[in-house]
Design a binder for these strands. Structure first.
Lengths: 113, 113
DNA sequence: TCCTATGTTCGATCTGCGTCGTACTGTTCG
DNA sequence: CGAACAGTACGACGCAGATCGAACATAGGA
């Protein structure tokens, strides 16, 4: 089938979202998608995220994020394109994506000497 | 020592908070504390949360939540009292606690048969 | 002083899940 | 048709972390 199913945003629970975002790799992928802004394929995301993991692992993480209602998938010829469900997530969990924008503490904490 | 240290809310990262809230038991404990409203001891929380786990497990979860900046601990004679750092968390991550108020899907998913 | 109640810490166990490799599906191009 | 590419499905492996029990610490009351 060419159709890609996604859960209606109303049926998404915060529990599932939290579990999905608890993994550092998935959090990086989400941030990369947020930075990309629009549709991006797997290799684009990996380059943007700066992580090097197997493609089956990427597929696994994408699946988890999709089932958590966070990302959307579209078929484009030979490849799949992914994007953040920005409006849906913002409507369902206002402020969540804003929290994620603050990236991980680069080089440990920014210790105020 | 009678002093209980807590991380300044500015130093708390969303990564740590997400990891802390990803566990179903900890999420239940946080919801119980939110329902309690004010300071509650371990047995109070367990009763409010309706879970039956060993006290060492509770101690472990409380530690994780405290290090994530979510709860505060105070010594009261023979026992420790815990409470949600509501204002701090709301200031640092606006909207987060509101998302958590929506409790878990009672009786599994609301299957649309 | 001794006993009880509340938490913490430590060690051991065990399950969940993140990761990888391989095989498979589907699409595009030569 | 056949080769190459993008992603998925599945099985296996290993590790992080959730849980428990026991020992310890501390405060309060008999």
């Amino acid at each position: 089938m060419t159709e890609v199913i996604e859960p209606p945003i109303e049926t998404v629970t915060i529990d599932v979202v939290l579990s999905a975002l608890a993994d550092p790799v998935r959090l990086t992928l989400v941030r990369a998608l947020a930075a990309a802004g629009d549709w991006a394929c797997g290799s684009d995301i990996l380059r943007e995220a700066g992580v090097t993991i197997g493609k089956s692992t990427v597929s696994h993480h994408v699946k988890v994020l999709r089932e958590a209602g966070l990302i959307s998938t579209r078929v484009d010829g030979i490849r799949r394109l992914f994007t953040l469900r920005y409006d849906d997530v913002e409507q369902r969990f206002p402020g969540l994506l804003t929290m994620l924008r603050e990236r991980a503490p680069a080089g440990a904490a920014a210790e105020r000497s």
